[in-house]
């Protein structure tokens, strides 16, 4: 009995010390709080940046990564998740952090080039191999009997881009007739049977559970699904027009200053704009800002007819209020059934 107690005690000490020396040790660490589909991108990029920084300064930097739905992650940062940098799905979420806390300046989007958006993406359709339902464009999604998979715009950043892409297409189609646009988008969302809380959940539902005829997805997410689960099962359909999705990045200044990491954090984000960074971005099926590198990956990143949120919706603040706030168009679509 005594020996047993002693070994238990030893085990406890070993466990605690392994824990404290491992995860709780002091070193240069950055916490990157990001949205769901960037897992693979930042897994690659963090490795590259660590090597680059070691080479440049001799310092070891470890990057901790947290992924989740974009709004959920923003909420966590507001509530005290100790992020040094955020790399979220849409500007509105970083605006919310600036607005609801004093963690970063309100003009954060002007602090880095290209509206603090080192990469863009767009919204495409993922369909089953051979496109059995012959889905070509947004119109096909509104047809009765088509099962559409998309996440919940209330909780998922990607889902908001999906919604606005459909809305933008309809605005053009009906020459800005709001009530027709609402009916059209409503028809698409009537075809949705499962509204996952995040983009990843929707992809899982579509590819792994085999539910739905079409998944409205981030371009990179669609490619990833094909690569991970087999090109013999799915194909990508690019609609006639889609939205330019701009997932921005920012240093959470107040946290970084407190950690003494504000310089590294800024360099971490700046390196995204470098040739190496842009190359990693393109390899992970995001669209780089650098046209030369976009050219290089042109076989994957095909030109798409794109509109921006600023042009069509007057920016995120307006779009959020009109469409996704309580009582907005999304709620109207769901409540009037």
């Amino acid at each position: 009995m005594k020996i047993k107690n002693l070994t238990n005690l030893l085990l406890l000490i070993v466990l605690i010390s392994s824990f404290t020396t491992g995860a709780w040790a002091k070193q240069i660490t950055l916490l990157n709080v990001s949205y769901d589909p960037t897992r693979e991108l930042y897994a690659d990029y963090n490795k590259a940046f660590t090597a680059y920084w070691k080479n440049k300064t001799g310092d070891d930097v470890t990057i901790k990564q947290s992924n989740g739905g974009s709004s959920k992650q923003a909420r966590a940062v507001i509530d005290g998740l100790d992020a040094d940098v955020v790399t979220l799905g849409l500007a509105y979420d970083i605006d919310s952090i600036a607005e609801k806390s004093d963690l970063l300046p309100k003009n954060w989007q002007t602090l880095l080039p290209d509206n603090s958006t080192p990469y863009t993406s767009t919204i495409v359709f993922l369909v089953r191999k051979g496109n059995p339902k012959n889905i070509k464009d947004w119109d096909d999604l509104a047809k009765p009997g088509i099962a559409v998979i998309t996440p919940n715009p209330k909780t998922s950043g990607g889902a908001r881009w999906n919604y606005l892409a459909a809305w933008g297409y309809a605005l053009k189609k009906f020459n800005g007739d709001e009530s027709k646009v609402k009916d059209f988008v409503g028809a698409i969302y009537k075809n949705v049977q499962i509204l996952d809380s995040g983009a990843r959940g929707s992809t899982t539902t579509f590819v792994e559970r085999g539910i739905g005829d079409v998944l409205i997805a981030w371009e990179n997410e669609a490619y990833l699904a094909i690569n991970e689960l087999g090109p013999d099962k799915f194909e990508i359909v690019i609609p006639s027009i889609s939205i330019l999705a701009e997932p921005p990045v920012a240093v959470i200044l107040s946290n970084a200053v407190r950690h003494g990491t504000d310089q590294v954090a800024l360099e971490y984000l700046k390196y995204l704009y470098s040739d190496e960074g842009q190359e990693i971005i393109a390899k992970n099926y995001y669209r780089p800002r650098n046209p030369l590198i976009t050219q290089k990956y042109a076989d994957k990143l095909k030109p798409v007819n794109l509109f921006t949120i600023d042009d069509v919706f007057g920016g995120w603040q307006t779009a959020q209020k009109k469409h996704f706030a309580d009582g907005g168009t999304f709620d109207q679509i769901y409540i009037v059934k």
């Binding site: 995860a23 901790k64 947290s66 992924n67 989740g68």
Partner: peptide
């Protein structure tokens, strides 16, 4: 799961 998920922050390896 549920309670921990709300307070965790989901930092990988931490």
């Amino acid at each position: 799961f549920g309670a921990v998920s709300v307070v965790s922050g989901h930092i990988q390896g931490f």
